[in-house]
Amino acid sequence: MADILVVAELTADGKVRKTTHSAITLAKLAQPALGGSFSILVLGASAKAAAAELTGFGAAKILACEDPSLANYVAEHYAPTVAAVGKGFGLVVACASSFGKDLMPRVAAKLDAAYAGDCSGVSVNGTQVVFKRPMFAGNAFGHVQLGTAIQVATARQSEFEPAAPSGGSSPIEAVAKVAPGAAASRVEFVSLEAVKSARPDLGEAGVVVAGGRAMKEKFFDVLNPLADTLGAAIGASRAACDAGYAPGDLQVGQTGKIVAPGLYFAIGISGAIQHIAGMKGSKTIVAINKDAEAPIFQLADYGLVADLFQAVPALVEDLKKHKAQKG
């Protein structure tokens, strides 16, 4: 029997990020194989306050490592504590956000643990956890078993329904920060320039409107009204980001964000394999493109062959009408 440790992720202002809830879901799905409980580790300058947000999810305990030196996330400062705490567990998990992707391989190496990154599912085979992982830009899924005493995995946020509070009140225990190694003395956090946006987080939005290079400098002029009308997050193709029409953190694709909203608009996006890998899990896909042969139409539930500069404003008007009628 072995227990599972979930590493929580905090926002820059010290709140629990929703990514944590997807990692909890992975832990709960893996629990039957290992037969034990799960606990949550929270690290940060105000970890205890954040830990209090997580007491209602059924964890055996919430471990809070509160230290001023953890105010800004730096892997070299976090990994030694996560690994030291993780030693007592059979499986250590986090969300495959940029935080989890940066931190968890480092933790795995420290624990001499095998690693399954960016999992889209887990299943149980007797006492073995089987991790399902997208490969080849989502064109194949591999089911992998890890053979080390401790295993480390990260959960693709869009593939794990965020855990809902299940009641109860897990006890909070303080844990001390483990002194970092030589690596930490040679890395310095300089800044985190967060892009301020009133829109929902791209990874968590129910609706995403994404634009391609065809939008040119009009990228936000075209997409903002549509996103406003739908309460949507804005995404972009790699080509639009590379050309500088949209910032890099909006990129949807194998090499950017992986999203799976209820409704996805691909506007002026041709549908390169690497873009499709980032959004093919969306429930309903709409494509608007003036090229009727664009590969995106093979994937879209609804395709509209039209000039986006005319179609999108018309769409905004019609959506507004629809909303007004619906009341």
Binding site: F99, E188, L192
Partner: peptide, 9 residues
């Protein structure tokens, strides 16, 4: 390039 912005180290 990290979620939501740019981190500099």
């Amino acid at each position: 390039e990290v979620d939501g912005g740019v981190s500099t180290l």
